[in-house]
């Protein structure tokens, strides 16, 4: 009991400490040195209307590469942890399949989700959204049918191919810049007309790679966890 109160006291104290630190900061008026410089020049030098996308894929592109690698590492590690065991028997059609409403709903939603996912990915340089957000929608589209018809899950091998090739495509786009005497991950193909679908150079291509990779990766993770079955 005493340790519980001690732990609570610790958590409260830590929060109070953080609060007294952060309340001393100029809330609402941050210095934004690097941020303001990016806001000033991003539209001209990168050409994406969504400046967050410029930061994610151009200015801090290697962060995003690291982030993709972390997802890949997590999915690989989950495979390493879960993969070794014999599969729990897949629930048979009677007890695993969804009802009429779920099955029809999924059939209707599946194409819609795919369209929305790709829309969000391909407009990532123009509107809020992008490869990560769209990729999650794609993963949902892939996993939803498994709820309705557990026997029809996407093939893990296909997902692995998509995931590997999309990741390689991201790096290959970065390496292509080296051939033109630029640094790694420099956006190519010119900035284009601000606000057009075909603008911002290679950024939409990079986001497509990100979206496919995130979608495949998350779908693989979710399917892997779902395979464990109820109350493993």
């Amino acid at each position: 009991m005493l340790t519980r109160y001690g732990s609570l006291l610790f958590a409260t104290g830590f929060a109070f400490l953080l609060f007294s630190l952060f309340i001393a900061l100029p809330m609402g008026e941050p210095p934004t040195l690097a941020g303001q410089a990016i806001l000033n020049e991003a539209a001209n030098s990168v050409g994406a209307a969504n400046i967050v996308t410029s930061v994610v894929l151009a200015y801090r592109g290697i962060d995003t590469l690291g982030e993709l690698s972390i997802l890949f590492a997590a999915a690989t590690a989950v495979g390493l942890v879960l993969g070794g065991q014999a599969r729990a028997p897949r629930p048979s059609k009677e007890d695993g399949a969804g009802g009429f409403i779920l099955q029809t709903g999924v059939d209707l939603l599946f194409p819609l989700l795919l369209v929305v996912g790709f829309y969000i990915i391909l407009h990532g340089h123009l509107t809020p959204g992008g490869g990560f957000q769209g990729g999650v929608v794609l993963a949902a589209a892939l996993v939803l049918p498994v709820l309705a018809r557990p026997e029809e899950s996407p093939s893990p091998a296909a997902l692995a191919w998509v995931e590997g090739l999309a990741g390689a495509a991201f790096i290959a786009t970065g390496l292509a810049a080296l051939a033109y005497d630029h640094a790694f991950l420099t956006p190519l193909l010119g900035a284009g007309q601000l606000g057009d679908l075909f603008s911002a150079g290679t950024l939409p291509l990079l986001y497509l790679a990100v979206g496919l990779k995130v979608g495949a990766e998350l779908a693989k993770l979710l399917l892997r966890l779902a395979e464990e079955g109820p109350a493993a």
Binding site: P30, L71, A74
Partner: peptide, 20 residues
């Protein structure tokens, strides 16, 4: 400032991976 927004995107994805 766009930089923290990009950082948050990264942090969220990292969190998802570790939690899985």
């Amino acid at each position: 400032d766009p930089i923290p927004q990009a950082m948050v995107l990264t942090a969220i994805v990292i969190g998802v991976g570790v939690q899985a």
